[in-house]
Design a protein around this nucleic acid. Structure first.
Lengths: 189, 189
DNA sequence: TATTGTTATACTCTATAACTATA
DNA sequence: TATAGTTATAGAGTATAACAATA
């Protein structure tokens, strides 16, 4: 190996903070062994909403990508296609606002969809700065199959959640977004 | 403007799919106007767990970053620092597994923490392939202040959620992760 | 042979500044 | 002046392949 010089070792036992911050008493299972047979103390991360939200979101997105692998469609692409499908003639700035994607980042996304023959930019005579977005025939056909796949994905997710949680989760997410502000674009600094 | 050639316009009215897929009857408010005064139809996105999870996660992370701006610490850095704090002497591979960060991506993260003088790689005599990770004194001091900030952030999030939701959300996230598999590294393909 | 850390690389997503052509 | 789309660019985060040192 070709790295880092040797550094004087410090006693590894000291608990950084006075309190333990969770239930587990450090040292009943010494974590500083080799094979790492005992569990790692993640506290307080598993009790943080943000951390668990992130892990869960990654798991759900991964399932989405796997489910839609046949069509090579990612969540963001599906969202844009869906909005165009529901609101044909929309401008990019409208999609940007609706989905919280900065208009500057939407360009490449639309470019891709256009290159793949799924969506189309059409000139707007009334305002020659903007484009009216539409699905192509191929895009519409794809969405037909895609929605079915995404429905299947959603069913897996809801099965994982269980019946009682299913109806409570979405309102929670809405409350978080409303109270903390939308996490993405929009606020155009 | 220097782009795209003119494309023949197609009728913008046609509803792409046979069914409406949501409650809103398209066309009671025609969406194809100019000023975009009426709402955009996002269905079925706001009812998708993945979509709402993503929007909420971005909102929460944004709040986290804002709250910890003074220390210039991002969620991933906080997670790594926390794990090292709780389990001094840990190897990178252990952190990788615990947090779902690929060991290959953890390198730059640890490099940064080391460069900032917050963490330290120490040689392990028993296994000269790996390093034992520790917080520096400066890292420990930072974590003291940081935990307080993150606690404040967490309180804001929990206030936004409301009391009844607070206790239900985390178990839901656990169920999603358990059922769908951890979204990140680990499974080392 | 397998594991640990590493480099190199690529792709997605997010973000800011600045330009253009229109309005 | 403001808006819509764009370019250029930068930084996180995630992903794979391949290597050296060590087990």
């Amino acid at each position: 190996m070709t790295r880092r010089a040797t550094i004087p070792v410090q006693s590894a036992a000291a608990r950084p903070r006075g309190k333990t911050r969770n239930g587990k008493s450090r040292n009943d299972k010494t974590a500083e062994r080799n094979g790492r047979t005992d569990a790692i103390d993640l506290s307080p991360l598993p009790d943080r909403v943000g951390y668990m939200l992130r892990r869960a979101q990654l798991a759900v997105f991964k399932n989405f990508v796997r489910t839609c692998a046949e069509f090579d469609i990612r969540p963001a692409q599906y969202a844009v296609l869906t909005v165009i499908e529901n609101n044909p003639g929309l401008k990019q700035i409208d999609i940007s606002t609706a989905l919280g994607i900065k208009r500057t980042n939407l360009v490449a996304l639309i470019d891709l969809l256009e290159r793949r023959g799924l969506a189309r930019r059409e000139p707007v005579p009334a305002d020659r700065r903007s484009y009216a977005l539409h699905l192509t025939a191929r895009g519409k056909t794809l969405m037909g199959k895609l929605h079915a796949r995404v429905d299947a994905h959603e069913q897996q997710v809801r099965d994982a959640l269980g019946a009682e949680a299913r109806d409570r989760l979405l309102p929670m997410m809405r409350r978080l977004i409303a109270a903390l502000g939308p996490g993405s674009a929009d606020e155009e600094s």
